[in-house]
């Protein structure tokens, strides 16, 4: 029983990571990967795809009380596959096709028989591309780091 719950939590954590990769994916890249993986567009739309707003919160001083500092567009979708799995997607922006594909991918991911394939063919490449872009950006920023040195003037 305890084992089951731990496993469940682990699966949830993995699903969160997969959904994050889908949310951050450029729409075109996701469409390309889904097409290459043979993800079918065949799913019943239970909700959306629809665009709305979220109010984005920060914290006073960085870590204090929360405050709203602006809104952002978000598009979401919920689908049901012919095999019964229900998938969700949420992502910044207004790309409805991406929202539908992401929800379908999330639904497929929940089928233990398809999970490995979805991870391999869609989630892993998306995460790798994001990691590479982040590494490049970090390296570019690092090159602008100031190296201070002290100039000694005079004899003593």
């Amino acid at each position: 029983m305890k084992m089951d719950r731990r496993q469940e939590r682990e699966t949830e954590a993995q699903r969160k990571v997969a959904m994050a990769a889908l949310a951050m994916a450029p729409g075109d890249e996701l469409k390309r990967l889904c097409a290459a993986a043979g993800v079918s567009n065949d799913a019943e739309l239970l909700r959306g795809p629809e665009t709305g707003l979220v109010s984005v919160r920060g914290r006073i001083g960085g870590g204090g009380a929360p405050f709203n500092f602006g809104e952002a567009t978000v598009t979401r979708a919920t689908v049901r596959l012919p095999s019964g799995e229900i998938g969700h997607s949420y992502a910044l922006g207004r790309d409805k096709e991406k929202a539908k594909l992401s929800a379908i991918t999330d639904a497929l991911w929940q089928n233990p028989e398809r999970r490995a394939e979805i991870e391999d063919k869609i989630i892993a490449p998306l995460r790798a591309a994001q990691a590479e872009a982040d590494a490049t950006s970090r390296a570019e920023t690092a090159a602008t780091k100031v190296d201070f040195f002290t100039m000694v003037r005079g004899e003593d």
């Binding site: 629809e50 709305g52 707003l53 920060g58 709203n68 567009t73 920023t141």
Partner: peptide
Amino acid sequence: LPRFGYTRPIDTAAMQVER
């Protein structure tokens, strides 16, 4: 547009820093 909700507060300490 409809409002979907309030986000969790962002964590600026975990920022992918550009400057």
